[in-house]
Computed example of a mutant assay.
Amino acid sequence: MKTELQKCLDGEIFNTSDEEIQKIIHNARKLAKDYNSTISTDSGKRRKILTELFGNIGNNVNIDTPFYCDYGRHISVGNNVIININCTFVDCNKIEIGNNVLIASNVQIYTATHSTDVNERLVDNWDSDSRLPYFRTFALPIKIENNVWIGGGVIILPGVTIGENSVIGAGSVVTKSIPANSVAVGNPCKVIRKIDNN
């Protein structure tokens, strides 16, 4: 029988109020708070917190504060990555970030989602004493491949992959995967041209 955490990672409906999941979330919130309280020059302390918070973190990674996440441990970051101020990663499922990635300020990455059908979204027979959440939730992984630049204020939705070398224009809402070597902009985000990196 699957745990609620395994259901979550498998993209199935899961109970966000599950005790194991809540413990992970509260730990991540504490570590994020600790991280956001550090001074930018204390690289040793910042690195130590991020190593405890994330599932994996490469070399030469700079994450400006404030930074917010949900589980922390589902975030994997490669080498030579900059994540600018005020970014939010809702990492119920995995968020994989490759090498040489630039993520501008106010970027939001959401793996969690809900059904558009209200009957599927609402929990049956919910009451205030229940350990069940109000709404049914599932989560899909997000992958940002190597050499990607994500512009300011971009929102990336569940299940999206952004292909290597691509650029996502500021303010875009990425609802579908973007192929490699693309410049993509807008809401919904669409490819406007290919990049010839030769």
Rank of each mutant, 00 (worst) to 15 (best):
R121K: 14
K30C: 10
V183N: 03
I13F: 14
V154N: 01
I97G: 01
I150N: 04
K23C: 09
R193W: 01
N181L: 08
N60Q: 06
S37T: 10
N36Q: 12
A139V: 02
E164G: 13
F138H: 09
D10C: 12
Q108D: 06
K143E: 09
N93M: 10
N62H: 15
L31A: 11
V90I: 14
H114N: 06
K143W: 07
D42K: 09
A139S: 09
A32V: 13
W149R: 08
F54V: 08
G153R: 00
K7W: 04
V174T: 05
G44T: 08
I49A: 02
I13S: 08
V185L: 04
N56T: 12
T161S: 11
P133F: 12
V174M: 05
N93C: 13
A139H: 00
K2R: 10
G11R: 05
G169A: 15
A184K: 02
K7V: 05
K7E: 03
Y134G: 10
F54P: 01
G171T: 08
G169S: 11
N197S: 05
T51G: 11
G163E: 10
E145R: 07
T137G: 04
Q22Y: 07
G151D: 01
Q6R: 14
N62V: 15
S40C: 11
N56R: 14
S172D: 02
V77Q: 07
P133N: 12
C87M: 05
Q6I: 13
I13V: 15
N181D: 10
I25H: 01
Q108Y: 11
G98T: 08
G11H: 07
R131S: 13
Y68L: 13
K143G: 06
L50Y: 01
N181C: 06
G44C: 09
K194D: 06
N27R: 15
M1Y: 07
A104E: 09
V118L: 15
N27Y: 09
F138M: 10
P66S: 02
N198Q: 04
L122I: 15
I85C: 12
D127T: 15
E20V: 11
F67M: 14
S115H: 10
D70L: 04
P141R: 09
K176A: 11
W149T: 09
K23S: 13
A139R: 00
E145I: 05
N99L: 04
F67Q: 12
I142Y: 00
F89P: 00
A104M: 12
L157Y: 07
K2Y: 11
D117V: 13
D124W: 13
R193N: 04
D18K: 05
G55W: 03
S182R: 03
E4W: 02
A170N: 10
A180L: 10
V167Q: 04
C189R: 00
T88H: 09
S128M: 12
D91C: 08
G186Y: 03
A104N: 10
A112Q: 01
A112E: 01
I75Q: 01
I168Y: 02
